[in-house]
Amino acid sequence: MNVPLYSSSYRNLRSSAGFTLIELMVTIAVLAIIVSIAAPNISNQLANQRVKSTVSSIESALKEAKAESIIRRQDITVVYSNADNTIKLKDDSNTDLATYNVASQSTINQVITPTTVTEVTFQPNKVMFGGASVIYTVCDSASTNETPRQVSLNSIANINTTTVGSC
């Protein structure tokens, strides 16, 4: 029995040389299900990351303002502009010392007590002007499921960051 080797192996190669259309469709369907489950989690993760970035910018601005007021021995004011999403540090002569950019999707709610104080001003003696305390609540306007955070600043200029319930 003299069977050529190349003819029998050629038939085996032809029968197993690829995927069927049904196998490809099942694979694509499984991938589509996985992507549809993962997509909301990715958008929430991005929103949380934007909130964390904004909180970090606020903290940095407040810490720099506190340090600059001590170093320069003058009042340093922190001004948040909702129009262009920036936080600016200004000295006594209203000169910009530094500018911090905030993510455009971030919304910041600033509450200053007592209400007679309208700006956050650090004094060289390590206290806030007028004994003010401030709470910045940071949310993300692009998502409703993110975890909002608060940056609080008490009258003796201690900065704390906490996670809060909802926006």
Rank of each mutant, 00 (worst) to 15 (best):
D91I: 13
I34C: 04
M1I: 12
I22A: 11
Y100V: 07
I70D: 10
P4S: 15
N101R: 04
K52D: 12
D84L: 04
L89Y: 03
T163D: 09
R14Q: 11
L62I: 10
Y80F: 04
T107D: 06
V26C: 05
L89K: 10
T116S: 15
L31V: 00
R11T: 14
L31S: 00
K52Y: 09
A38D: 06
N12Q: 15
Y136R: 00
K63L: 14
E59F: 13
C167R: 06
N85W: 02
Y6V: 15
L5K: 11
M1C: 13
F129D: 13
N2D: 11
I71N: 14
N158H: 13
L97P: 15
N125F: 14
A38R: 01
R11G: 06
V3N: 13
A39G: 05
T161G: 09
A98R: 14
N85I: 04
R14W: 14
T20K: 09
P148L: 00
C167V: 07
T144P: 02
L13Y: 12
T162A: 12
N160I: 09
S60L: 12
C167A: 08
F129I: 07
P4N: 15
S57L: 04
S141W: 02
L62W: 08
P148F: 04
N41G: 14
T54C: 01
N154G: 09
C139D: 04
V35Y: 01
R50A: 05
L89H: 12
L46I: 11
S143H: 04
I87L: 07
V35T: 05
S141Y: 03
L13Q: 11
S9K: 15
T162M: 07
V78F: 03
S9I: 15
